[in-house]
Amino acid sequence: MRENNRWKYISNRMFLLASVLFGFLALQILIQCILFFREEAPFWQVMLFLVFTVFFAVSFWVFVLRPYRRIQMMIRRILDGYILPDKSLFDQALLTPTMEEEIERMEQVLKSPEMMDLNKRQAQYLALQNQINPHFLYNTLESIRGEALIAGMDNIADMTEALAKFFRYTITKVENLVSVEEELDNCGTYFLIQKYRFGNRLQLHVLCDEENRESIMNCRIPKLTLQPILENSIIHGTELKIGTGNLTIRFEQTERRLIIRISDDGVGMDEQTLAKLNRQLGRGGKALTENEEKKGGIALVNVNNRIHLLFGEQYGMHVYSIRGKGTDVEVTLPIVTTQDREMEKV
């Protein structure tokens, strides 16, 4: 049934018409070549058909097919729940003047205060849903810890305690913004858990200007900003290298911005992979790539999108990497030192 209805779509009819026209031109080139070899047609006539056919094929690809596929991919991403890309990306592939008006209207609706409030309410509902009974998890982990202490397995007891502390921060603490100090404490807990797996193969360093240390530690950033990046650095960087892996978190404060750089000396990535990742992060929400499987914790794209939602698209994340040398993830945030009540809501 689906096959029978394929021709109801104007796009399919357009591609069929283009294919027929291209086939006709190719047939004419073949006929002109035969006539030329029979000395019944001049050479310039053959070349004219050939140049026109090539021009038609290239023009159709550049001005029709490629923009069509681009906008089709963007619409798929919107349907999958991604944020509406910058409207300027649609300008190269607008089908009709009406479509431009529809996109402007869609942008107004998606970015309206009512929609933002609805998103906040949905996030609040999900957060409350995740907290329905966290005490069962904590009590179970505490029971495991108690049994481990009785059995003299101190390492298992310490690991269980660290895991309970990590989940308590992740699940129970519902604020959108937390202090840098709290985020670093959670990173320390996560790193302690990883140390039981990697031992001395893994080292974590935190660097901060001592003059601005107190100010930086009191800055408020989105919860679970640093730990997912740290996890990504371990899984895709230091874990894959031979020898000791070093992870470094650097803080720099300017007049209006807090710049955080998470670095590793792992395997790094090639230029093509790096460019693809940065397109996906897409400073300003202009990412346009196919969905990729995300492994290990909260994806970098998730962190980046939360920063965009909270602070705007002028802030976010960018990745630098050299193959065989390591990777740096730079996070740019505004200086927030007081709790904005609207922003603190989940």
Rank of each mutant, 00 (worst) to 15 (best):
L192G: 03
E255R: 15
L281R: 03
I156E: 14
F251I: 00
L240I: 10
I103P: 04
I229Q: 02
Q129F: 13
K286H: 15
T327C: 01
K325Q: 09
K286Y: 12
A41L: 13
C219H: 10
Q227N: 14
E255Y: 07
A287E: 15
E239M: 05
T53M: 12
G324V: 01
G312C: 05
M317C: 00
G285Y: 05
L207T: 04
G324W: 02
L274F: 10
F36G: 10
R145W: 00
L202W: 12
E107R: 09
I75G: 08
S143R: 11
C33H: 15
M115N: 13
G266V: 07
Y196N: 14
L65H: 08
L192Y: 12
L277I: 08
M1P: 01
I150Q: 07
G237M: 01
G285H: 09
R77K: 15
G326M: 04
K120W: 10
V178A: 06
G237F: 02
T160K: 04
S263I: 05
G81S: 04
R76K: 13
G316W: 06
E181W: 02
Q92R: 09
L192A: 11
Y82Q: 12
G324C: 06
H308F: 14
E271C: 03
R323G: 01
L333N: 13
T332F: 10
K345D: 00
V64S: 11
G146V: 05
R69Q: 08
D158E: 12
K8V: 09
I31A: 08
D185R: 14
I29L: 09
Y190H: 04
V346Y: 11
L137C: 12
L126C: 03
L17Y: 15
K165H: 13
E107W: 09
Q45T: 07
S19R: 14
K295P: 00
I260L: 04
L149G: 08
D158V: 11
M269T: 09
L247V: 01
P222Q: 02
D91F: 04
M1S: 10
R306C: 06
E214N: 11
L25P: 00
A151W: 06
N302W: 00
D340L: 09
D154I: 15
D328G: 06
E210Y: 07
L247F: 03
V62P: 06
F49M: 07
N305F: 00
L95Q: 08
M153A: 13
M1T: 02
N4L: 12
E330R: 05
A26I: 14
L204F: 14
V174G: 12
D117A: 05
E3R: 04
W7G: 03
K111Q: 07
G297H: 07
Q122V: 11
I31C: 05
V346R: 10
N186Q: 10
L126T: 00
R13E: 07
V336E: 12
S112K: 13
V54E: 10
I71D: 13
V346Q: 09
Q339G: 07
G282W: 00
I335H: 10
L230N: 05
Y320H: 04
A127R: 02
E101N: 11
K173T: 15
V319F: 05
L309V: 05
R13G: 05
G312K: 08
L333A: 04
L277N: 02
Q45I: 05
D91N: 08
K345L: 09
N155M: 07
E175L: 07
